[in-house]
């Protein structure tokens, strides 16, 4: 038992956030302003995601937090503990067991089901921000569906780098209407945005919530002669041997030695438990990372 209200936020605030979420679900990709509260963590640590999670959590939920694919980094551990303490919900590291997953920078490799909710932490919700600094103007561009400028960014990429070099926060068009920033997930994850689960995006500092309902059409922007490509490191995971998952590159010594491993730790551990071994892997043992 705790002295906090369930999931830290008071009921009125949660109600306000739920309204924003419902509006966001009704208008896929539209950024709904909401009265973001101060949370007991700094901006940039997931204050938006935490508020959305607090509003959707119920006592029966099982909660999972991902930070850059991993369950065991500072941000993931502290947010998981936060809700363990303030909501008393069950927590897990297994994607399949979780009903609410808060994530930063990744979508799990495991395909999500329709009874799961994915909550994203969003630093800058406005995809047009770095092209058009005026908020008044970007809102007008969204409302009038003037998205030519988004392609100017991709044009610049190709003219400077010979290919669309945007590798994360790759802009998408939701249900043929709103252009949306999918938060800084790698573009490898963009095809997965078309999923069975509910996706909610919370930006605490910028005070915006937006959403992608299940089975919504999400298209990555591209050019006819430079089509979108979901890229990843051209390698297999050195721990579990997976060739279909997004990889982190790790420098292991001063002689240029490196290894690639799954960014999704739960996915990697699951495969190793099942007996898969990569080039530098060892057979799975409990309590050994």
């Amino acid at each position: 038992m705790t002295d906090y209200n369930f999931a830290y936020l008071d009921e009125q605030t949660k109600r306000m956030i739920r309204r924003a979420i419902l509006k966001g679900l009704a208008i896929p990709g539209y950024q709904v302003p909401f009265a973001s509260r101060e949370m007991p963590m700094p901006y940039g640590w997931g204050t938006g995601g935490v508020q959305v999670s607090a509003a959707v959590l119920t006592p029966d939920d099982t909660f999972k937090v991902i930070d850059q694919g991993a369950d065991d980094t500072t941000n993931a551990v502290s947010i998981r503990r936060f809700f363990e303490k303030t909501a008393g919900v069950a927590v897990t590291e297994a994607t399949v067991d979780a009903s609410v997953i808060q994530t930063r920078h990744r979508i799990p490799e495991q395909e999500l089901r329709s009874d799961q909710i994915l909550v994203y932490q969003v630093p800058i919700p406005e995809p047009l921000r770095f092209l058009e600094p005026s908020e008044v103007e970007t809102r007008k561009m969204h409302s009038l569906e003037e998205y030519g400028l988004m392609h100017v960014k991709l044009y610049e990429d190709i003219s400077q780098h010979g290919a669309i070099a945007t590798a994360y926060a790759y802009p998408v068009k939701v249900e043929g209407r709103y252009v949306m920033d999918p938060s800084p997930i790698p573009k490898f994850d963009n095809p997965k945005l078309n999923m069975a689960g509910i996706q909610l995006f919370g930006a605490g500092r910028e005070q915006r919530i937006y959403a992608v309902p299940p089975y919504t059409d999400v298209v990555s922007l591209d050019f006819d002669d430079y089509p979108f490509e979901a890229s990843k490191a051209d390698h297999a995971c050195d721990l579990c041997g997976a060739e279909d998952s997004y990889l982190d590159e790790l420098i292991v010594d001063d002689a240029g030695g490196r290894m690639f491993m799954c960014s999704d730790t739960d996915y990697c551990a699951g495969r190793r438990k099942a007996g898969c071994i990569g080039a530098q892997g060892i057979p799975y043992q409990e309590d050994v990372a």
């Binding site: 092209l131 003037e146 030519g148 400028l149 392609h151 100017v152 044009y155 610049e156 190709i158 003219s159 400077q160 050019f223 006819d224 002669d225 430079y226």
Partner: peptide, 26 residues
């Protein structure tokens, strides 16, 4: 747009009216 290349500046209006072929825009 001072932070966009000359080509991007000229191409912006084309892209705004729906041009989606990089080679032709360029």
């Amino acid at each position: 747009r001072m932070n966009v290349s000359a080509g991007g500046n000229v191409g912006e209006r084309l892209m705004a009216v729906g041009a989606r072929h990089y080679g032709e825009i360029r």
